[in-house]
Simulated assay, not measured.
Amino acid sequence: MPADFWAGYLSGAAGILIGNPLDLVKTRLQAGTAVSGPDDASSARNFRSNFDRAGTLVRGATAPILGYGALNAILFVTYNRCLTHFGDDPAVPNNLWKVWCAGAIGGLATFVVSAPTELVKCRAQVSTGATSSWSIARDTWMREGIRGLYYGGGITSIRDAVGYGFYFWSYELSKQAMTTTEDTDRQAALKVLLCGGLAGVVTWASIFPLDVVKTRVQIQAVDGPSPAVLEEWSRLLQSEPEPVRAEKFRRLGTFQTARQTYQNEGLAIFFRGLGVCSIRAFVVNAVQWAVYEWMMRLLKQE
């Protein structure tokens, strides 16, 4: 395997280990009333309520640790190869448009891993029971097959393509603006952390509404939501006076989910959790880029 594969894999796994607690809060804030009854609507917005017990801190982390490492490996390998194909040097790129395009292609290539990983992670994180990532993946496979694991894959692939385009673009832009040939090793390392953190914040700010819709599409259960949620939806939509039955429920597509979310909760819902996500993004991506750059230098020396 090439050096960028292992550097990407290890940096991705490190990022998940550090950022999972805040990612859990972000997912639950995005889900909102989609997974809670009317009596629990306020708790969906409460930061502390998302950490109901110690195990919650690592809930949903298994799938991302395994999957995101592979995702990051695919991402960096594809990005480097595309940028080379475009006639630019991945180590010191000169054309930021080519950087964005290579990043977008890399993000699109991660679809095969990111779609099922995100689905399992989101469902595990919004689960109120002791449901593991493995049991969710197994149940989804048995009930719906491979198609079920890729539910919401369309919006996921768009989110990843746009997001990773801005990810590499913002990293290289800030790196070129900050670094000089006179930097010491310590200064260079600190600037990598800062540039990586800024890249993470820019990325999530550019795709957060898409991520909200993706989360809500993927957390829809096969048999529909709980009766309490169905009654709440019926009240909000003012559709049927009698309680809506589960057998009437059909999972919504991306555009239907976006429209219903806007009608029920307004424009603000598409940015709920952005603050938590920005903090997480800065920390996680600062670490990821530092690990990636360090591993690349180490592996190339060997």
Rank of each mutant, 00 (worst) to 15 (best):
D88T: 07
T84E: 13
Y262K: 15
G152T: 02
G103F: 04
V212A: 11
F168I: 09
I158F: 01
R159C: 00
R250Q: 14
A228D: 15
S42F: 06
S206L: 02
S174P: 03
G37F: 07
W97T: 13
G107I: 05
L173S: 01
A73D: 05
L267S: 10
R138M: 06
E240S: 12
G15S: 12
K300P: 04
T110D: 13
V276E: 10
N94C: 12
T78C: 12
D23I: 09
Q256K: 08
D139Y: 05
K98R: 08
D88C: 12
S11L: 13
F271Q: 14
E172C: 07
L71E: 06
Y151R: 04
V291R: 06
A102W: 11
E172V: 01
I158W: 05
V58W: 10
A61F: 05
N285C: 14
T131C: 08
V192Y: 00
W294T: 00
W100F: 14
A199I: 00
E240T: 03
A221Y: 00
A246N: 11
N285M: 07
L230T: 08
T62I: 15
D4N: 12
S174K: 09
W100L: 14
K121R: 14
V212K: 05
V287T: 11
P243V: 09
G69W: 05
V35S: 12
L66F: 09
G129E: 14
T110W: 03
W289M: 13
K214Y: 02
G107V: 09
N94Y: 03
R245H: 13
R53V: 07
W6R: 14
S234L: 07
S36A: 07
G107A: 01
D211H: 12
G152S: 04
L274M: 05
